[in-house]
């Protein structure tokens, strides 16, 4: 899970899920606790889907 997806691609990550920023990948302090939780729960959920998905090349999963 990374904000700089192009960097993750370059260093060879295979399953990638975008996050929202560098200092707070999974929860913007400016937003409400509830929104932050939803974001985190959703994106970790996408990461879990990525883990059970067969891929044949580097893949960025949609969030």
């Amino acid at each position: 899970m990374a904000n700089l997806i192009p960097v993750a691609e370059t260093v060879g990550a295979n399953r990638m899920v975008p996050t929202i920023s560098i200092p707070y990948p999974l929860g913007d302090p400016e937003s409400s606790e509830d929104e932050q939780w939803k974001l985190r729960y959703h994106r970790v959920g996408v990461a879990l889907e990525a883990l059970e998905t067969a891929i044949d090349e580097q893949t960025v999963f949609e969030v």
Binding site: P23, P25, L26, G27, P29, R40, V44, L48
Partner: peptide, 29 residues
Amino acid sequence: GYDPAAADANPDRVVPLDALRAYEEEGRI
């Protein structure tokens, strides 16, 4: 390499243990 304020205030923003625990609770993992 980054402003620590958000991570120090809530480390789950970087290591999403709370979300993963929820999936554990649900039986998803």
